[in-house]
C-alpha cells in the first residue's frame, strides 16, 4: 500500500525536478566557477545592489504594514457604503502586474506628469519639483503602492473573524478608539501582520518589473543585477552567483514566513 502511494507522488515530482530543481542545480554549479564568488563579492556594484535591495525591501515592508493596517482598520471597523467594493477592488488590484504602477507613476510624477504640470500651472515655473521617480524613492513608492494590498488581505480576513462583541464591551467600559486599537485589535492582528509582512518582504526582495520600468541607472537591485549580468553582459557565472545570494535571502525569509503563517493559521 505505501509503495503505491509513493508511486503516485512520483510523476509530479519528476516534472518539478526536470523543469525547476535540475535547472536550479545547474545555476548552483555554474556559480561555483573558479573565482566567481570572490569576483562578485569584491565588486562595488554587487555590494551596492545588495544594500539597495535590502533597505528598499525593509522600508517598503514597513510602509506596507503601516498603510495596510490603517486602511484595513477603516474598512473593517468604520464601515462605509462601498466598503465591499473597495475590498473587491483590492482583490482585482492584486491580480495586475506590478510594473503597471511604475507606468502610472510616470504620468503622475514624471517630468511632464500630472504633479509637475499642476506645479507649472500654479507657479509658472516650467520645471516642477518632483524628480524622485528615477531614484530609489520612486521604486519605494511603487513598491508600497503595489504590495500594500498583500498586507490588507490577510488583515481583513483576520478582522472579519474578530468578535465585534469584544470591541463593544471594550468601548462600553469606556475605552477610547485608539486604546481599543492598541489593546484589543493590534494583538489580534499581529499574526496576520507578521504573515503579510514577511510575504511582502520576500516579494520586494524579488521584485523586478517595478525596477526595470523605472529605467533608472541609479537603482540596481539583486534581481536587476542578475538580469543585466546574464542578458546584457552574458556573464553567466556572475549572474548565477548573484542569483544564489538572492535565492538564499528570499528562501530563508520565505521559510520564516511559512512558519509564521502556519502559526497564524493563515
Amino acid at each position: 500500500m505505501p509503495t503505491t502511494v509513493w508511486l503516485w507522488a512520483l510523476p509530479p515530482v519528476a516534472v518539478l525536478a526536470l523543469v525547476f530543481l535540475y535547472p536550479l542545480a545547474l545555476v548552483v554549479q555554474e556559480s561555483l566557477a573558479p573565482g566567481a564568488y570572490a569576483e562578485v563579492f569584491a565588486s562595488a556594484s554587487f555590494r551596492e545592489a545588495l544594500v539597495t535591495t535590502v533597505w528598499l525591501a525593509v522600508a517598503a515592508t514597513v510602509g506596507c504594514l503601516v498603510l495596510g493596517f490603517v486602511l484595513a482598520l477603516v474598512i473593517a471597523f468604520v464601515p462605509f457604503p462601498g466598503g465591499k467594493a473597495v475590498s473587491k477592488f483590492i482583490d482585482v488590484f492584486l491580480s495586475f502586474p506590478s510594473f503597471l504602477i511604475t507606468l502610472a507613476l510616470l504620468f503622475l510624477y514624471g517630468t511632464v506628469g500630472m504633479a509637475n504640470g499642476i506645479w507649472t500651472d500654479v507657479t509658472g515655473d516650467p520645471a516642477g519639483p518632483f524628480r524622485f521617480l528615477t531614484t530609489p524613492w520612486g521604486v519605494l513608492l511603487a513598491e508600497i503602492t503595489y504590495f500594500t494590498p498583500f498586507v490588507m488581505r490577510p488583515l481583513l480576513a483576520a478582522f472579519s473573524q474578530m468578535e465585534t462583541a469584544q470591541l463593544e464591551v471594550a468601548s462600553s467600559l469606556g475605552a477610547r478608539p485608539l486604546r481599543i486599537v492598541r489593546q484589543v485589535i493590534l494583538p489580534e492582528a499581529l499574526p496576520a501582520l507578521a504573515a503579510g509582512g514577511s510575504l511582502v518582504l520576500v516579494m520586494c526582495l524579488n521584485e523586478f518589473g517595478i525596477v526595470l520600468f523605472t529605467g533608472a541607472k541609479g537603482v540596481t537591485t539583486l534581481p536587476m543585477l542578475v538580469y543585466s549580468k546574464a542578458i546584457l553582459e552574458s556573464d553567466y557565472a556572475s549572474a548565477c552567483v548573484v542569483a544564489i545570494v538572492n535565492v538564499a535571502l528570499s528562501v530563508g525569509l520565505y521559510v520564516l514566513y511559512r512558519g509564521v503563517s502556519r502559526r497564524a493559521g493563515a
Binding site: F20, P23, L24, L26, V27, V202, L205, N206, F208, L222, P223, V226, Y227, A230, A239, C240, A243, N246, V247, S250, V251, L253, Y254, V255
Partner: peptide, 10 residues
C-alpha cells in the same frame, strides 16, 4: 520563494 528572474536564469 525563488525570484522569478532566477527561475528565468535557471
Amino acid at each position: 520563494a525563488v525570484p522569478s528572474v532566477v527561475v528565468g536564469l535557471a
